[in-house]
Design a protein around this nucleic acid. Sequence first.
RNA 1: UGGAGCAGACGAGGCGGUUGCUCCUUCUGGCUGUUUUAAACCAGAAGGGGAGGAAAGUCCGAACUCCAAAGGGCAGGAUGGUCGCUAACAGCGACUCCGGGCGACCGGAGGAAAGUGCCACAGAGAAUAGACCGCCGAAGGGGAAGCAAAAGCUUUCCUCAGGCAAGGGUGAAACGGUGAGGUAAGAGCUCACCGCCCUGAUGGUGACAUCAGGGGCACGGCAAACCCCAUCCGGAGCAAGACCAAAGAGCCCCCGAAAAGGUGGCCCGCCUUAUGGGGGCGGGUAGGUCGCCAAACCUUCUGAGCAAUCAGAAGGUCAGACAAAUAACCGCCCUCGCUCGAAAGAGCGAGAACAGAAUUCGGCUUACGAUCUGCUCCAACCU
RNA 2: GGCGCGGUACCCAAGCGGCUAAGGGAGAGGUCUGCAAAACCUCGAUUCGUCGGUUCGAGUCCGACCCGCGCCU
Length: 118
Amino acid sequence: MDEGLRAHERIRKKKDFLFLYQKGHRVKGKYFNLIYHENNLGYSRLGVVVSRKIGKAVLRNKIKRWVRELFRRNKSRIPFPMDILVVATQGIEGISWQVYREEYFRTLNRIAHREKKN
RNA sequence: UGGAGCAGACGAGGCGGUUGCUCCUUCUGGCUGUUUUAAACCAGAAGGGGAGGAAAGUCCGAACUCCAAAGGGCAGGAUGGUCGCUAACAGCGACUCCGGGCGACCGGAGGAAAGUGCCACAGAGAAUAGACCGCCGAAGGGGAAGCAAAAGCUUUCCUCAGGCAAGGGUGAAACGGUGAGGUAAGAGCUCACCGCCCUGAUGGUGACAUCAGGGGCACGGCAAACCCCAUCCGGAGCAAGACCAAAGAGCCCCCGAAAAGGUGGCCCGCCUUAUGGGGGCGGGUAGGUCGCCAAACCUUCUGAGCAAUCAGAAGGUCAGACAAAUAACCGCCCUCGCUCGAAAGAGCGAGAACAGAAUUCGGCUUACGAUCUGCUCCAACCU
RNA sequence: GGCGCGGUACCCAAGCGGCUAAGGGAGAGGUCUGCAAAACCUCGAUUCGUCGGUUCGAGUCCGACCCGCGCCU
């Protein structure tokens, strides 16, 4: 599996965001919430939301870069093709790259477990 | 050595590699399409570019776009020593005056004799000054004592009529200051010096400076109160705006008067329109494309100018996204800190802070560094 | 990204440059009551988001900064 992140692999349309907010399944985490919904594209797509409450522009960009890096490096951990929306919450501004990575993997595992049951 | 002032550079290590993003150019393949070639799109390869000095705050000024060709007036706003620079500016440079500092240096700047308004409390009086305490009471009035025949004279008291504004006191501010003369006591009443005002001469483009003569003091403060004077400004803003255009719905143009609406806060002016008649097939949402990166540009040199800056020559082109691009990590070297060691050296850690382009420039302001550099001033010590 | 509005006690707020910075709610204490409620009385801002400037004097006028909110695709 490739480790790229091309334009079509990112959620870019306002409609897609609104659809996920309405129909997506939510997983609440300590530092971010994750909204997902399966798609029929054959590949997964990623969207990142970091509001201005989190911090200044430098920090917001850094968080987005972390999220994208983990997504493209670990596409094989995603159980099936879906749209993923990562919404950063207050508290994320203090943590390190390693802590964030652990949290991301744990959240993906939770989704895999939940979907197996269903 | 310590303290201080001003100016300036840099913005963070260097080399190489792996994975990944974005834009440009060239090439290859695919898809679509057609008479054919291509464009666009997708994938790949090669080469190249890829955040800041403040990209920030959005405080000023412009370019650009639309609002009728943005036009006239009012209202409103901005600036404020002088001269210059600039596309423009609340910016920059040089100079002038005033204030602060021992000093390097720093800060301020039109008009208060065009008008209006305000100056609480305190105080006698606060802008056509005023008299609480106080000082005087000379000439005038009254009382007492002495001298004198008398007229009167001398001394003294009253503080009566009145005079004064020196001193006390109030206040942020009290209607020139100091000294001398003068006087009953005083007072620019007079004089000297200082301040102020007026006139003239000289120098300077000018703010202003210097000098000479005169006046006899008049002109309190506040215009970041209204205002006056001079100069400048139409309004919005790239989410401006232009073009293509699914779905859905019908929509548009021409003719004519009143009314309504719009056009910048108002007026003028200008534009549009219901209804009726006639004619025609466009307008525009989602979405897409453009605007969107070569510009008042950067570097070096030469010349003009005290300087800001200007002129010329040569060379360079180095972000262009749109839920929005720089990250994760490895190796070697370098610098710094800590530990071990007699030393050579070894190990560990760190390489930041403020902060992320969003139409583009010129400034201002604010934030920041464990990177530096230069000049200057003051103090102490040494020679 | 651009444009606009606001910040005064715990909350809502008024405030021509001049007295101790109105008022309402909530709170605390008291009066009343057997105890409460209601009513009545009393109390609280060392300072008006922060820092400078103008003025004799600033919550108010003028700058700079901080924070909060709204509108425009």
